[in-house]
Design a protein around this nucleic acid. Structure first.
Lengths: 230, 230
DNA sequence: TTCCCAAATCTGGTCATACCAAAAATGCGA
DNA sequence: TCGCATTTTTGGTATGACCAGATTTGGGAA
């Protein structure tokens, strides 16, 4: 990992060391605790503030935000190597299903030749990787995001990108299993064909079934929706 | 506006003043240009990097990122008072429909008494505001987000929050029209009743119709999907 | 003239220090 | 015990300096 560990360490520290009203230690104290300069602390705090994790009140102090932090914050932590709460992983998969099934439908109406070409390229690259016995983490991400891109809704794309930023560390593990990679790849092919036929219902159904695989995988790994629904 | 204008100004400046390879002026040059200290520039750059807008390469320079910036970045700019590209607004509305219609359905299965109570409180507050001739911007946000919260999927909530952060400046304008506020409020009541009856299909349909209003409003204001689909 | 490599320069990363003004904590006096 | 003035703390900001690797530059060799 090359990532910013101060950021996640700081966030963790703030959560553990804040008073009842959410007030955290001062910048100077934090700097001393982490043996870094105040500038470093301020840079990290600026990010945490942008992520709505803390609020900095001039001449008063730093306070934990009561509202929910952004998804970006989750992505940021995931990138920094902080293990994500299993419940959050499950919730993310549920949300991903909602997004990508709808994306598949929209893509059927809006995909251009350019999108189809890129999808073909990605499938070809996947084939090559499979032949070489390599994992499909990158290709999987590219395939799914290309479909979202085909919706021609850039905000949609931005939102969905986050999932893959979050899963950067986990995806390679998922695709380490070559049988799973092969099956996933074949499902991708069928989805591509449905998109090409512009069959919205079929594309939705195939995407739903495809993501069901990932959902089952994570459920099996973490305990399922009973926990998440609590 | 109290917000960080340096951040958006800086972002705009970086986009206008980067070379072919995406390299931007150095921190020292930026500091001089904006007549602030290097520390201020570094703080802003830290945020822009977290948002995947730029990449800072040690001892080399600052480079614009080629991939799509995060939704959070949009929210950040919106908060800073940067007018959002109309196309992005339209795309956001489309995405919001996808999210919230699904949220209404899920909420029918998962809403607890606590959620219902809060929804009632919000509706009561809306009523009071309407009687006083005030706008419903805050109550509208609270109502919609409470439904998302009722899905018991915190990631879902995080994602949807962004829309309202983005719309912080626009929503009050939308609700300045008292007739629109009144109609919106009545639709909220009907949605609440569907949720209470746990009628998923009805809730979806009502939410869809409700958001159609917002969609039409923005379409009328900016030109519609023809532009967005381009 | 062209090409390659060493030296000078530039760049982000980091730290220490200082000053401001307002908020927060303190303590004195009523 | 309470209220207010004083002291301390706190975030916001600026300046200056040093490091080490990346980049650029320029001169010498082919």
């Amino acid at each position: 990992m090359k990532e910013n560990s101060l950021l996640s360490d700081l966030a963790a520290y703030l959560f553990s060391n804040s008073s009842d009203n959410g007030r955290t230690p001062s910048e100077r104290e934090l700097a001393e605790h982490f043996t870094v300069s105040r500038g470093q602390i301020r840079e990290a705090l600026a990010i945490l503030e942008a992520m709505r994790i803390v609020e900095r009140r001039a001449k008063s102090g730093i306070y934990l935000t009561t509202t929910e932090a952004s998804v970006e914050a989750m992505a940021l932590f995931a990138r920094a190597g902080v293990p994500l709460d299993p419940i959050l992983i499950y919730e993310t998969v549920e949300l991903r299903k909602i997004h990508e099934i709808k994306a598949a439908e929209l893509a059927c109406n809006r995909a251009t030749e350019e999108n189809y070409r890129r999808l073909r390229d990605i499938l070809a690259a996947s084939e090559a990787k499979l032949a070489g016995g390599e994992g499909l983490a990158r290709e999987d991400r590219d395939f799914h995001l290309e479909i979202v891109r085909a919706t021609k809704n850039s905000v949609f794309y931005r939102v969905c990108s986050v999932y893959y930023v979050m899963g950067e560390h986990r995806l390679p593990i998922y695709f380490a299993d070559s049988a799973r990679s092969r099956r996933s790849h074949e499902e991708h092919i069928r989805i591509y064909e449905a998109l090409l036929a512009r069959d919205g219902n079929l594309a939705q159904a195939l995407m739903s079934a495809h993501l069901q695989g990932a959902e089952s995988y994570w459920k099996g790994l973490i305990g399922g929706p009973a926990t998440a629904a609590g």
